[in-house]
Design a protein around this nucleic acid. Structure first.
Length: 866
DNA sequence: TTTAGCATGCGAGAT
DNA sequence: GCATGCTAAA
């Protein structure tokens, strides 16, 4: 515990000078430019405060100003403040911005972080109170699933019918609700074929044996420690004199309990959030927490931030119109001093491909200034964009893995000068985002953008550390650092392939179990006793020798991993090998790098690239132990490429972001709102979807374009779609209905038979929906319907075939110059069916599927269907 | 033991 | 439509 006291003293000193500096310059400079509501939220220092911050109302600004205020007015020292966020990104951003307000980096805020990071810190100190050692490992979802799978199989349950993932989410659900196995209510006992609770219990036992915990445990263990040790809790209550919580609407029951315990004494808790942006119910968030705040904390002051600095009047009005459909809101009305701007644009398409094609064309129009919208674009909006850019330019962040996140996810910071100069006449690609409900919707857009050569980036998907190669590499590091890490050993023992299949691995398991040793030791015994012989045994022997050798190369006398701040690198490592070099050696000598070098699949170069990045990331750490300590909590996936690109992501991923131009495709009932959401959660599911719609619209600063398609392929099957009910809820006065020019009727008649699908499009449904809402009386809407009425001839499947034909491989012959999104320019060397052999200028020779290629230097022809 | 070929089933995804 | 995971063959 001594390190705790020491670091506090140090941090207090640092904080005092922070505050002094800020004060010396001018009293309360952080208040500059705050509106009255924001000031209110900043100045109400004591007692419970709920800051209801609508989208784009300067929430982070107010929150960081509040921290600056607490510090510089002497209410608190940096280590007196507990500030929790959900994501590392948010924590980083808050740190940076507090630092900026105070004129120097806010290094000394030890308790600003995510719920999980703070819990890790607490739990390392008090691990023994919950039967863990302070060097416990944190399992991620993947580890968790493998462990659960073992338990399921051991219990003689059919893993096919009852997959580990399902059990994992059941258990996570319980942990989100702070339910330990003994507290699971009877109503839930049927879960997982009535074996859920029993398996949950076994799982917890295994975790304790492995000296490990999962993400949920981080919170639950800390809660238990607090509940069982009044004195300790009281101590922390005194230490954390001021508590701030970001995105309070996303807290789950466990987080709520955790906060309530800590705030119980002084009640100086300031929660910031927006009930209208609660979109994470499916992962345990309880909107109820924010709705109940005033009951939970009697006498709470509620401040509403309603002045919006982001979006135009029409966009705000459209968003407000939609969200008003929800019941049980705390209620806010966003307003702006800015212009009304453009109305929200609405457009219908024949099918998903046409929607993607139209969006692609519209983006080209926006970026080249040929769109009507782009003309006369004024220099008004960009306060927020500008601020964001400034912040990023200064930023860099204090993250120890800088290399991986030089830029925030959108990469907007370092536009070349010429881009900046005309940014206000047209839109840069960086300023445009396409936000989809489900990630599979992205495919159509990716295909289209690759075809027309429009640069795009996808946000989301697997994070860096979730990638196979990263997890493999980390497993190697883990085995070297802690030889007892059986889960890691299992992962790497036959990766790359060493001829050690199920049977050999079972032999190792048995050997380890009967001797009561780790798998690594068990494997050693297997080799020594020739229990595993032949080729496999030899390879295993090589691996074990390698691990032993690498272990000796670890710097200094091996110390078990403790709290990160206790890890002090010792000078003059005996081996003379830095941990970065060691990492390279491990990956090389294990054959792992070679494995990917020999791999001919198109992903292999990317994976090698990722491994390089991983090694680079190590530079930011003192040693391997320190790296592993932090990595499961903080690695993220942000690339540092500078080229302006359109952003493609899910609505969920877009929360908290903003873009001058936003496309919201796929507004069709069943897709959005999602059928599954409504089936599972009924009205509350629908309301969450509606909040998602609200989040989507409010991401847009200037131009918001909603679209839907009449036909869509769902799991390979064509389905006719109805426009989303949320479209009916858009207030007419703020919507402009577009008809895509030249989109319809260019195909020519083919067959007169009208399928049910086409009748839907042509006939009553669209029309009924429109007239029922009595919204779309504009000429554009009528024209749209009329045009659709004429088009009774084209099968969706035929449309698709035509697209394929036009895109087809045969478009390329040997000798053609081509472009590939990932590998760049190259020349066609061979053609085999849909696979093309390409000699790339930079990336060497590869086999690529034809549809990922674009004819180079031929943008206008050949590659564009129709 | 590995891998090729077929059956299966599908949401959003921080920590 | 495609990724995942199993069974059959090499």
């Amino acid at each position: 515990m001594s390190s705790f006291d020491d670091s506090d003293a140090f941090e207090a000193a640092a904080g005092a000078s922070l505050a002094a500096r800020a004060m010396a310059a001018r009293p309360m400079p952080y208040m500059d430019g705050l509106n009255p509501a924001q000031r209110d939220a900043v100045e109400q220092v004591d007692g419970p405060v709920l800051m209801l911050a609508g989208a784009g109302t300067g929430k982070t600004r107010a929150l960081t100003a509040r921290i600056a205020h607490l510090l510089s007015m002497g209410h608190a020292r940096p280590n007196d403040i507990l500030a929790v966020t959900f994501t590392n990104k948010a924590a980083r951003e808050m740190k940076n911005r507090v630092g900026q307000l105070l004129g120097q980096p806010a290094e000394g805020m030890p308790w600003l972080g995510t719920f999980h990071a703070i819990c890790v810190k607490l739990l390392r100190r008090h691990a023994e109170m919950v039967d863990l050692k302070s060097n416990f490992t944190i399992l991620d979802t993947d580890d968790q699933n493998r462990l659960l799978k073992q338990l399921i199989i051991a219990s003689d349950i059919d893993e096919k019918r009852w997959p580990a993932r399902a059990l994992g989410s059941v258990i996570d659900g319980w942990k989100n609700r702070a339910l330990t196995p003994d507290k699971v209510p009877a109503a839930d006992h049927g879960a997982f074929n009535h074996r859920g609770v029993e398996l949950y219990e076994q799982y917890q036992t295994r975790l304790r044996e492995l000296n490990a915990c999962d993400f949920g445990d981080l919170l639950l263990h800390v809660i238990r420690i607090f509940q069982e040790n009044e004195d300790l809790l009281a101590q922390y209550q005194r230490w954390f004199r001021y508590i701030l919580v970001d995105e309070y609407q996303d807290t789950n029951v466990a987080q709520y309990l955790w906060l309530r315990l800590l705030a119980a004494g002084h009640k100086n808790i300031c929660c910031v959030g927006d009930d209208d942006q609660s979109i994470y119910g499916w992962r345990g968030a309880e909107v109820g927490n924010i709705l109940r705040f005033e009951k939970d904390f009697p006498g709470a002051k509620v401040v509403r931030l309603e002045q919006n600095y982001r979006s135009t009047g029409h966009i705000l009005a459209a968003a407000s119109g939609v969200i008003e459909g929800n019941k049980g809101r705390l209620g806010k009305t966003l307003w702006t001093e800015g212009e009304d701007g453009h109305k929200v644009r609405l457009i219908g398409h024949w099918d998903g491909d046409e929607e993607a094609r139209w969006v692609g064309e519209e983006i080209e129009a926006l970026t080249t200034g040929t769109s009507r919208i782009a003309h006369g674009r004024r220099n008004v909006r960009s306060t927020s964009f500008q601020q964001e850019n400034d912040r990023r330019a200064k930023g860099g962040g204090d993250s120890p893995i800088k290399n991986l996140n030089l830029q925030e996810s959108l990469g907007g910071s370092n536009l070349p000068e010429e881009e900046k100069s005309d940014i206000f006449n047209t839109f840069s690609s960086n300023e445009i985002a396409i936000l989809v409900r489900a990630s599979h919707q992205m495919r159509a857009f990716e295909d289209r953008f690759l075809t027309i050569g429009l640069p795009y980036r996808v946000i989301g998907g697997p994070r860096f550390y979730e990638r196979m190669e990263i997890r493999d590499a980390m497993a190697y590091f883990r085995v070297v650092v802690s030889p007892d890490d059986d889960l890691a050993f299992e992962r790497i023992v036959n990766t790359p392939k060493r001829g050690l299949g199920d049977k050999a691995q079972q032999t190792v398991q048995k050997m380890a179990r009967s001797n009561g040793v780790s798998l690594l030791e068990g494997a050693r015994l297997c080799v020594e006793t020739k229990a595993i012989g032949g080729k496999g045994g030899a390879a295993l022997g090589v691996l074990i020798d390698g691990i032993t050798r690498w272990r000796q190369m670890l710097q200094g006398p091996l110390r078990q991993v403790g709290p990160a701040e206790d890890l002090i690198q010792e000078e003059g490592a005996p081996s003379g090998v830095s941990h970065v070099e060691l990492a390279e050696i491990i990956l090389d000598e294990s054959g792992y790098t070679g494995h990917w070098q020999n791999d001919k699949t198109p992903e292999a170069p990317g994976r090698l690239e990722n491994l390089k990045e991983l090694v680079k990331a190590l530079e930011g750490f003192e040693n391997l132990q320190g790296f592993l300590e932090h990595v499961s909590l903080i690695m993220d996936n942000e690339s540092d490429d500078q080229e302006p690109k359109v952003t493609l992501m899910t609505l969920h991923a877009a929360k908290g972001l903003e873009f001058p131009a936003v496309f919201l495709p796929g507004w069709e009932d069943g897709l959005f709102p999602s059928q599954r959401s409504m089936d599972e959660s009924g009205l509350s599911g629908l309301e969450e979807e509606r909040r998602l719609a609200y989040v989507g619209i409010t991401r847009a600063e200037e131009v918001c374009t909603i679209s839907f398609a009449g036909n869509r392929r769902v799991y390979g099957q064509w389905q006719s779609q109805l426009p989303s009910r949320f479209i009916d809820e858009l207030p007419e006065a703020h919507v402009e209905v577009l008809t895509p020019p030249g989109l319809y009727g260019h195909q020519g008649a083919m067959s007169a038979s009208a399928s049910p699908v086409e009748q839907t499009m042509a006939g009553s449904n669209l029309h009924d929906r429109a007239s029922k809402a009595d919204v779309y009386n504009s000429p554009g809407w009528r024209r749209l319907q009329a045009n659709q009425g004429q088009r009774t001839m084209r099968q969706p499947s035929e449309a698709k075939n035509m697209t394929i034909d036009a895109d087809a491989v045969s478009a390329f012959t040997i000798g053609d110059r081509v472009f590939h999104q990932k590998f760049g320019y190259g020349e066609v060397m061979s053609v085999e069916g849909d696979k093309l052999g390409i000699e790339f200028d930079k990336a060497g020779s590869k086999h690529v599927v034809g549809r990922f290629l674009v004819a180079a230097g031929n943008e206008s022809g050949g590659d564009v269907p129709f």
